[in-house]
Design a binder for these strands. Sequence first.
DNA 1: TTTGATGCAAACGGTTTGCACTTAT
DNA 2: ATAAGTGCAAACCGTTTGCATCAAA
Lengths: 141, 141
Amino acid sequence: MQPIFERLKEKGLTLTPQRMAIVECLVGNTTHPTVDEIYSGIKERYPTMSKATVYSTLKVLKDLGEVQELSIRKRGEVCFDPIPGMHHHFMCSECGNVLDVTLACPEKCPILSVDTIDGHKINEIQAYLYGICSDCASKSA
Amino acid sequence: MQPIFERLKEKGLTLTPQRMAIVECLVGNTTHPTVDEIYSGIKERYPTMSKATVYSTLKVLKDLGEVQELSIRKRGEVCFDPIPGMHHHFMCSECGNVLDVTLACPEKCPILSVDTIDGHKINEIQAYLYGICSDCASKSA
DNA sequence: TTTGATGCAAACGGTTTGCACTTAT
DNA sequence: ATAAGTGCAAACCGTTTGCATCAAA
């Protein structure tokens, strides 16, 4: 836990208790939490925590490249991924949960190897797979 | 224009003037319009058109498989694509415009060829490329 | 006639903003 | 002392809903 705080401090982030709680909630979290999920999880131990602070901290962490905001909405809310680097995501159409996908395109895939498409410069790629997760599949069976 | 109306009718859609206007606006439209863009475009010629009707018609068309709702928000609003079949999308981080991407993954790409990932059944894939479109690039140069 | 579509307005809900207060430097 | 972060509430805005009206079958 320490190294990430040091890195954030080096990046110029003021480390308040609120921000540390939010970062702690995010580190190693693979559930792709929404603002409300982060807020609710922290509020139990930290009753004065405000949603506005969660919003503002996530924006700062996003600008620092520490967190990525996904394009998909998790049950209507923006959700976040603390894992850096490109990877894809699976969303269950039934329960709405978002999961990291380990399968990757081959490096030679044209969509990954080009940095320009139809004359437009590409900076980032996000792929989303939709379907039914194994939990929901076994429940309905 | 006629064949699509016939097809929609066969699918059980009641063809009202409002719905026809919305379909006309969508056919051949590659701008990935939002509800408000569709509504604004039609309202000039059709002053009583209501946004609620646009919402409800898009939902029906989506359920019929005639239109797909994209996962990305175009300047904060849901946007739609009348082109059937899988293809990818590019969004300009500057102007927010959404463009169809002609480049495709090879058929043998693992992410396309599997129908299950980590035990979860996959029904649909959407990929999004982010960057700066050529228009915005030349403007800032 | 009966069913369904329309359109207005109100409600909803996630996100943003303003501002007074508090905390870090 | 100054700058920055927090937290509450209000505002914002895209979307949904309720309901009376209207048109299609």
